[in-house]
Design a protein around this nucleic acid. Structure first.
Length: 421
RNA sequence: GGGAUCGUAGCUCAGUCGGUUAGAGCGCCUGACUGUGGCUCAGGAGGUCGUGGGUUCGAGUCCCAUCGGUCCCCCCA
């Protein structure tokens, strides 16, 4: 069969079998966030394109070459390419800062980036996100990292399959000096850098640090530590001692500078050793203390994380983590003869209202075919209705495990079955 | 945006140096007491071999283009 229409490149349908997995990790995420005091936020898929240009950065790859932009009249909209900016926008729009104190928001959202798809990278992907507003203390960073690592653990991912990478990139006060130091380093080694990085040296010199091609050269690049201002140093040291106290394992990664413009101080990633191929970052995030103000709000320290749902699923499968199996049907109602079909539907409705997972044939199939369906769907009981049962107001209930059959009054069907499930 | 690789039934794949009606397994449908499943057996449906050109007496097999999938670079979840 030639397909006239198919899903767009890099976009995928999620079929029932996979949906089960999605629902599982989603419910885990929701429960997890609840335990940590988060409330859910849902923001539109479409936002003003400018929101992302201002926050993620016009020169970032995400905005400059991957964002889906729609033009309608004078307005320019963008399919959200990441989750944080819309949440910050909503935080401001609804004055969530006005209550004072800390706001914790979590979300589950699709996002869109027009990249060439590969393993773990799609044009529509999904993200579990969590953002904390109004907390400047490293306590917040530590709690967020705990929450993330605990989340992966709760999915049955062994600690040795994951690695938390941590860094600080300073703040607008101390980063310029470090930026200059890296730029100088780059200039001294200009001819050895790849073309990409030679260009980066002007706009965003820190990005040469996480270039894979220039990995060997930048190994000797200056670390940020001596350049950190007192506050940034204290923050980072505070975070590290908290992580030690909490027994959260991490590795310091001097190169972790990340590609979104809004980050300050803490940056982190969790990478997986198996299942992901080249795109091995399961999640990424950090602090963005300047973003709320940049978008027109009051100065508000903030931080957050985005977890790739597809990537999480890939790792779960690669590591054979325990996942739910399709729930079996409780009951399949079988009609012998056309006269019994309407009754079969009535009885199915009665059972469904009693919270029993019930199905029946809708095609007018033979009794044998109906029994096959019952079996294939994993039903525990078959409720058989024929002339004899109709005449007596009963049903024959067959236990598909033991093959035993009982005559049960139609009125008492659901309670009879429930006590035997 | 650049590159590699693949594209035969719903799924997983076979198809020999180009040769006649394109196969298997799984799945699906029907039947083997005209009111009863799982196993077994017997039948059956389902493919313009991604698409379009070309070479040839003849193309699923060779060539070109095109469209998709997968993976890699880039970048990131």
């Amino acid at each position: 069969m030639e397909l006239k229409y198919r899903a767009l490149e890099g976009m995928h349908d999620i079929l029932p079998e996979q949906s089960l997995l999605w629902q599982y990790v989603e419910s885990r995420w929701r429960e997890h966030c609840r335990r940590y005091g988060y409330g859910e936020i849902r923001t539109p898929i479409l936002e003003s394109a400018e929101l992302f240009e201002r926050s993620v950065g016009e020169t970032s790859d995400i905005v400059s070459k991957e964002m889906y932009v729609l033009q309608r009249g004078e307005e320019r909209y963008a399919l959200k390419p990441e989750g944080t900016a819309p949440v910050v926008r909503a935080y401001l729009e609804h004055g969530l800062y006005s209550g004072g104190g800390v706001q914790k928001l979590y979300y589950i959202t699709p996002f869109f980036r027009g990249e060439r798809p590969q393993k773990g990278r799609y044009r529509q992907a999904h993200q579990f996100g969590a953002e904390i507003f109004g907390a400047a203390s490293p306590l917040a960073d530590a709690e967020l990292l705990c929450m993330v690592m605990d989340f992966f653990m709760s999915l049955g991912l062994p600690a040795d399959a994951l690695e938390l990478r941590l860094n600080t990139i300073g703040c607008p006060e101390c980063r310029p000096a470090y930026r200059e130091a890296v730029r100088n380093f780059g200039s001294e080694n200009f001819n050895r850098l790849c073309k990409n990085c030679q260009a980066r040296l002007e706009r965003n010199p820190l990005r040469i640090l996480d270039c894979k091609e220039c990995f060997e050269i930048t190994a000797s690049a200056p670390p940020i530590d001596p350049y950190l201002c007192d506050d940034c140093r204290a923050h980072f040291e505070g975070l590290q001692s908290l992580l030690k106290a909490l027994e959260v394992a991490y590795v310091r990664d001097h190169r972790l500078v990340r590609g979104l413009d809004y980050y300050t101080r803490t940056t982190f990633e969790v990478v997986a050793s198996q299942g992901l191929g080249a795109q091995n970052a399961l999640c990424g995030g950090g602090r963005y203390d300047g973003l709320v103000e940049d978008l027109g709000g009051p100065p508000t320290p903030a931080l957050g994380v985005g977890i790739g749902v597809e990537r999480t699923l890939l790792v779960l499968q690669a590591l054979h983590a325990p996942v739910p199996t399709p729930p079996p049907l409780d009951v399949f109602v079988v009609a012998f003869g056309d006269a019994a079909r309407p009754v079969a539907l009535q009885i199915a409705q009665q059972l469904r209202r009693a919270a029993l997972a019930t199905d029946l044939d809708l095609e007018g199939r033979s009794p044998k075919a109906q029994m096959r369906l019952a079996n294939r769907n994993g039903a525990r009981f078959a409720v058989l209705l024929g002339e004899m049962e109709l005449a007596q107001g009963i049903a024959t209930v067959k236990d598909l495990h033991t093959h035993e059959q009982h005559a049960v009054s139609q009125r008492e069907l659901s309670s009879w079955i429930k006590t035997r499930l």
